[in-house]
């Protein structure tokens, strides 16, 4: 932790950043905190979020950057958070010149739990790199199910939805000002469970964009395996368009450009 605190302290004292978005224990809880030069002593308590208490810092940064577009901010990032930063740069929500990442490497436990293919940031200021998990067993299990069984399983999960929008509200990649999930002509209102397609629509929006931080699934009060759905959506984007979500070299999102050639063909009937 000393290395991380020293880096943050020097960034703040040298005036390289206007503030640092990290974590601090408040009333016994690890919570997101904004560290500034004025309250430099707080940096001694700066910490890395425990695995079970992660927050969408990227989302807080979007709000900060929106209010102070000229300021440079440092932010604590895990592998997933950094993928998020890279996607947000592409979608014009953040300016890479105005963000300084303070990198964290996840523990092996966390990486195994997340089935994370890249559990560390490009700069590591805290933790040791662990082994990535290339394949998701949860996705593979659904893949092997018969169509009817898969349908029943998903249907049972979707029926539990209480339409709290928690998955959307916590998602660092959900930055739209208008949401089609709230569009009266596209999604039925005033009923529970919501339309069966509710989660599928979100999965479509997450495809090629989900950074696999897993906050949606942890937030969901109905225990819908959202992460499996979004992991698969991303895997499909990889298969169809060879696009790696959150990789700085991956080029523009396939949903953002028409492309120079039609690389796919319509499936025969």
């Amino acid at each position: 932790m000393d290395k991380l605190r020293a880096k943050v302290r020097s960034l703040l004292t040298e005036g390289k950043v206007a503030g640092y978005l990290g974590y601090l224990i408040k009333d016994g809880h690890p919570l997101p905190h904004f560290f500034t030069k004025e309250n430099l002593a707080e940096v001694d308590q700066a910490m890395v979020a425990p695995d079970s208490a992660r927050y969408p810092l990227d989302k807080l940064l979007i709000a900060l950057a929106g209010r102070y577009p000229e300021a440079i901010f440092a932010i604590q990032v895990r592998g997933c958070d950094e993928r998020g930063l890279n996607e947000l740069y592409k979608w014009g929500q953040l300016d890479p010149e105005k963000v300084v990442p303070v990198g964290v490497a996840c523990t092996q436990n966390q990486a195994d739990y997340c089935e994370c293919p890249g559990p560390w940031a490009s700069v590591v200021d805290y933790g040791e790199k662990c082994l990535p998990v290339a394949k998701s067993r949860r996705v593979e299990r659904i893949d092997t199910l018969a169509e009817q069984d898969a349908f029943q399983e998903w249907l049972a999960a979707f029926k539990r939805c209480i339409k709290c929008y928690g998955c959307r509200d916590v998602c660092p990649m959900c930055f739209c000002k208008e949401c089609s999930l709230e569009h009266e002509d596209l999604m039925s209102t005033g009923q529970l469970p919501p339309d069966t397609i509710f989660q599928l629509v979100r999965a479509i929006h997450m495809a090629g964009r989900c950074i696999d931080c897993g906050l949606c699934e942890e937030t969901c009060p109905a225990d819908i395996p959202l992460r499996v759905l979004y992991k698969k959506a991303n895997a499909l984007v990889k298969d169809l368009f060879d696009y790696d979500v959150g990789s700085p070299g991956a080029g523009p999102s396939p949903w953002k450009v028409l492309g120079e050639d039609a690389t796919l063909e319509a499936k025969p009937m």
Binding site: I142, D143, L145, E147, Q148, D149, A150, F151, Q152, E153, W154, L200, A203, I204, A207, L229, K232, A233, L236, V237, D239, L240, F241, P254, W255, L258, G259, D261, A262, L264, E265, A266, K267
Partner: peptide
């Protein structure tokens, strides 16, 4: 000119996603 490039991208993706969730 290239509007239908997006059509085929979207529909191929959607067909695969529907398959995963058992939606025929």
């Amino acid at each position: 000119l290239r509007g239908n490039y997006m059509t085929v991208k979207r529909m191929r993706f959607l067909q695969d996603l529907l398959k995963f969730t058992g939606f025929e």
